[in-house]
Amino acid sequence: MEHFPEAWGRPRNDIYGPYDHSYLQTTGPKAHTQSPAVTGTSVIGVKFNGGVAIASDNLASYGSLARFTDVKRLRVFGDSAIVGFGGDVSDMQHIDRLLNSIDIRENYSSDGNLLNAKNLHTYLSKVFYKRRSEFNPLWNHILVAGFDGDGKPFLSSADLLGTTFSAPHLATGFGAHLAIPILRRLFPEDTPLENISKEQAVEALRECIKVLWYRDARSLDKFSIATVTKDGIEVKEDEKVEAQSWAFAETIRGYGAQVN
């Protein structure tokens, strides 16, 4: 019998070692803003002829727990830009509020000068950089899809440090490891954009989401997929990974419960 009520519900010292009180520190700088809590992972994007396609699953994890399974992580801005969020979900919601206020300000005077995806990406990267410089980062990695000032398809990423990166195909989270190689194989670096159709791009993203669902433990089989073209934005938020085949799982060796 444990006679000390303050120890009830805690891991036993004699088994797990002394409790680490460093999490309960009351002095020193605030540190809870410096790690994410509820997180989304992969967002993947591909440029195609005349636009950009972007996809993410609908999961928000609490650590390893699949806590929220209907979180829409693609955010439409205006009529020709989409922001895809990976990382902390509450920080995503904060950025969503920033984007809402910009949207209202931009449309207040209907003079036709609207922010394009490139402007939006510049703005968001500055927000990230400012916050990381205050040691209070917004714990996100985002992709911005749309068009630049010349009307060419635009896809670029920004992360919690304010680092920006641009490529014909991009991904955040585990997608950066699992989806990018697939996309690079499908659309090699020197493929001209004109040779990639919208259908090919969307199909590739669906394939990537499926692979992520197979192999990334923080992913979900429900996902959102969107395309930006000159004709506007198409968003589908309740897609499901189809034609699953787990046969490959039998052949995986190296971890887990194995008989042989």
């Binding site: 922010l115 402007n119 939006l120």
Partner: peptide, 15 residues
């Protein structure tokens, strides 16, 4: 130019 990478719209700055 710094925050949005966009030349400020005329109407905006005049307002």
């Amino acid at each position: 130019k710094m925050t949005y990478g966009r030349p400020i719209p005329l109407e905006r700055i005049v307002t």
